[in-house]
Computed example of a mutant assay.
Amino acid sequence: MATVNERLQSASIGHAVDLQHLSNAEVRKIIALLNSVDADLRKLLIDAIEKAGTNTYTVQRMNTVLASVMALNKAIYASIGEAMIEVVSDLAAYEISYQQALFTAVIPRQVLVTVSLNTVNLAQVRQIAMSRPFQGRLLKEWMSDLEKDRAARIRNGIRIGMTEGQTTDQIVRRVMGLKEEGYADGLLNRSRKDIEAVVRTAISHTAQGARDAHYRANDDLIAEVSWLSTLDNRTSEECRVRDRLRYTNDTHEPIGHKVPWLSGPGRIHFCCRSTSTPIIKGWEELRLSKGLPESTRASMDGQVPRSTSYGDWLAAQNAERQDQILGPTRGKLLRSGGVKPGDFYNDKGKFLTLEELRDRDAAAFTKAGL
């Protein structure tokens, strides 16, 4: 039977995977919101370029004719900022309730009768999400900076196009890109990548803030905290070196090593996928009655669980959970095709399409009956 700490570690890994799915969904929604003004932006750009005219071009005139473009840009980022506030607020509430439910389900009832499980103030966690910087800036500051960066890309793209004598169509293409290329060749595609990084980091920042608050509120139960990194070919060096290292619960001082906590998992760099798991004190350390059932004492041994990689964890899940994480085809490749979790990514950490997977390893599809 798994101990309490083993069950918490497994749940923490699975929850980190679910948060990645949430992050993916929120990125798609925010990018769709950003793209929703593309048609209007194109019209305004054409109008502004034609009004500017190559023969009468000056910086002052450019700023004047681009006023409507910049107003639209500012408005869409204001909408994105409002959407992000809703995202992190909802996530803060969810993460608190999840941790409370997890502890209630995993820690034996006989233990919680003696050592109470404390709740966390939701307003406090929401305040952490909004008023504590991640990667050096507050969420509202990131929104403002991203809006300004996109505005600068628009201005620079037009300015360069005009000085090179390009047509209106060529300048718009430079700024926005080609539809058949998925607009990836346009200057504004950088803005999509930037907003994706901020969305993912804001989500991981908020989730870890809620976990930290929950752990601190239950310091009587928790001995220390263990860093959990998703070990695959996308794992950063900062997270790889910290995987399974232990820290104090209150001040995050290193235990048995010298590697600093810094900003913590989920915050140490952009798009960090690391998380944390608590190590619950043993029943003797909690000074629980020796009259506890033997099974309860065994589950509350206080030991640090054996390290489990993401690949090991995924392989131990049932078929339904594997398919939920990977999709049914990749799930079957994992179970029957001899494909390992890391094989689903290329050397740059990008999730391979099924066509790319088939080109790389057609034999695995045959072996899996696909």
Results as ranks from 00 to 15, higher is better:
residue 33 L to S: 05
residue 282 G to C: 03
residue 200 R to L: 02
residue 72 L to T: 13
residue 64 T to G: 02
residue 165 G to Q: 07
residue 97 S to Q: 14
residue 326 L to S: 06
residue 324 Q to H: 12
residue 7 R to C: 00
residue 170 Q to Y: 09
residue 268 I to W: 02
residue 144 S to M: 12
residue 193 K to R: 14
residue 261 W to S: 00
residue 162 M to E: 07
residue 143 M to C: 12
residue 318 N to L: 05
residue 45 L to D: 00
residue 293 P to F: 11
residue 102 L to K: 07
residue 362 A to W: 07
residue 106 V to A: 02
residue 214 H to M: 13
residue 76 I to H: 02
residue 346 N to V: 03
residue 354 L to A: 07
residue 126 R to F: 01
residue 82 E to H: 11
residue 207 A to K: 02
residue 185 D to H: 09
residue 35 N to W: 01
residue 187 L to Y: 12
residue 208 Q to D: 08
residue 235 T to Q: 05
residue 59 V to T: 11
residue 168 T to A: 08
residue 76 I to Y: 03
residue 265 P to F: 01
residue 110 Q to C: 00
residue 73 N to Q: 15
residue 146 L to E: 09
residue 94 Y to V: 09
residue 235 T to H: 03
residue 90 D to I: 15
residue 252 H to K: 08
residue 42 R to T: 15
residue 23 S to W: 03
residue 281 K to T: 08
residue 206 T to D: 05
residue 271 C to L: 10
residue 234 R to G: 03
residue 221 L to W: 09
residue 269 H to T: 01
residue 130 M to Y: 07
residue 113 V to R: 12
residue 163 T to Q: 12
residue 260 P to G: 00
residue 140 K to S: 12
residue 44 L to S: 13
residue 360 R to M: 12
residue 297 R to I: 06
residue 215 Y to I: 02
residue 135 Q to R: 15
residue 307 S to A: 13
residue 43 K to L: 10
residue 256 G to I: 10
residue 183 Y to N: 14
residue 119 T to R: 13
residue 180 E to V: 14
residue 140 K to M: 07
residue 58 T to Y: 04
residue 149 D to F: 14
residue 63 N to L: 07
residue 335 R to Q: 10
residue 325 I to Q: 11
residue 215 Y to W: 12
residue 105 A to W: 00
residue 350 K to V: 00
residue 200 R to Q: 07
residue 43 K to P: 04
residue 304 V to C: 04
residue 236 S to K: 13
residue 308 T to I: 13
residue 322 Q to V: 03
residue 259 V to E: 10
residue 365 F to G: 11
residue 217 A to G: 15
residue 268 I to A: 00
residue 96 I to V: 15
residue 100 Q to T: 08
residue 44 L to F: 05
residue 248 T to C: 05
residue 278 P to F: 07
residue 86 E to G: 08
residue 83 A to P: 03
residue 155 R to Q: 09
residue 242 R to M: 04
residue 9 Q to R: 04
residue 2 A to Q: 05
residue 348 K to A: 06
residue 369 G to F: 00
residue 295 S to V: 10
residue 145 D to Q: 11
residue 75 A to E: 14
residue 367 K to L: 15
residue 317 Q to R: 14
residue 282 G to P: 02
residue 271 C to A: 08
residue 106 V to Q: 01
residue 331 G to V: 06
residue 116 S to P: 15
residue 260 P to N: 05
residue 150 R to A: 15
residue 75 A to V: 10
residue 170 Q to D: 12
residue 193 K to I: 12
residue 94 Y to A: 10
residue 60 Q to W: 00
residue 207 A to R: 01
residue 186 G to P: 04
residue 289 S to W: 01
